[in-house]
Nucleic acid binder design. Structure first.
Lengths: 157, 157
DNA sequence: GAATAAGTACTCGGATATAAATTGTCCGAGTTAGGCAGG
DNA sequence: CCTGCCTAACTCGGACAATTTATATCCGAGTACTTATTC
């Protein structure tokens, strides 16, 4: 149950874009160079963020990506689900209906099985915690030196 | 970020073993037949549960698996980590140190990055919720009819 | 100098290739219970 | 009736194969900015 590496990439990129402000657009190549990531693959993730409405993209020369809305309104959950998809980690395959459960009254399975209920409860706690943290929170918590260096890195290019 | 199907298998097996009582041992083949699962692969998961101390196994004829301790003392987290491993879903690869971050004062990276902190917080909420639910809770919550049918299924074999 | 055309830089989306994790199978070795033969 | 051996049933552990997912690359099409050209 490993989370895609793309989540880390996406969050770092969002943080960077937040620091630069939404009036500036940054092309994929520049973001990829910032973290030494494969440009084409990073682009795929940025596109996913764009489809999810987290980022906005401008085509053409001097185009690139920027945050689609204020950092206060972007949660960690928004970014994670954009990359990982909407589905939860656990998928119930209803094995209780097979084998010993075959041929039983369908009404016996009307309620979801207790296992699914239990795991879903944990997943909801996870989502709730992710939704409670915004990009703005992250930006505020980061050391000032890192922000300064990042802005400087983007100033020259 | 999909959770292994083995978690569902493991939990259903633990539930079954709990209903049958820890004085009785059940071989892999019987458990596999109960849910129509591939016996050899299920066995691999049962072994993982045994290594984790959730199940106990007896070799030899009339051998098999049983719960290693009372259901009250087995949490969902115990089972999930036995199958999925001890590591969390998110792994920080420290991309902040690469590219723009290369050559900076190492002390600047002394604290873990805000992204890791944020995601870890959510993972801890997830683990806390899993640890709060025991096998005994699941057993109590399941419909009595299902328990009865399971016992009957195992009575004849 | 303004309008227009060509060129350049960039994103978008899909097709495709490669690496890795998951899922599933197989087999040999070790262990125990129960049956069987010999005394 | 007792003892020792044999066999069947089972786990254990590792090697291996198949399948799916994650990672990564490439290219054509479309879009916007810039420059060059024309009037």
């Amino acid at each position: 149950m490993r989370m895609s590496e793309g989540v880390e990439w996406a969050l770092h990129c969002c943080l960077t874009l937040g620091w630069l402000g939404s009036d500036r657009t940054v092309p994929t190549a520049k973001l990829a160079a910032t973290f030494e990531l494969p440009p084409a693959y990073l682009n795929k993730h940025l596109q996913a963020l764009t489809r999810a409405g987290v980022l906005a993209s401008s085509p053409g020369a001097r185009g690139g990506f920027r945050l689609a809305r204020p950092a206060e309104k972007i949660t960690l959950l928004d970014v994670v689900t954009a990359i990982e998809g909407r589905d939860g980690a656990f998928r119930c395959t209803e094995i209780r209906r097979r084998g010993a459960g075959a041929g039983r009254d369908p009404q016996e399975f009307a309620r979801q099985c207790v296992i699914t209920t239990g795991i879903r409860r944990a997943e909801m706690a996870w989502r709730r915690e992710l939704a409670a943290q915004t990009l703005a929170d992250m930006m505020a918590r980061a050391p000032a030196a890192a922000v300064e260096r990042t802005r400087h890195w983007y100033a020259k290019g």
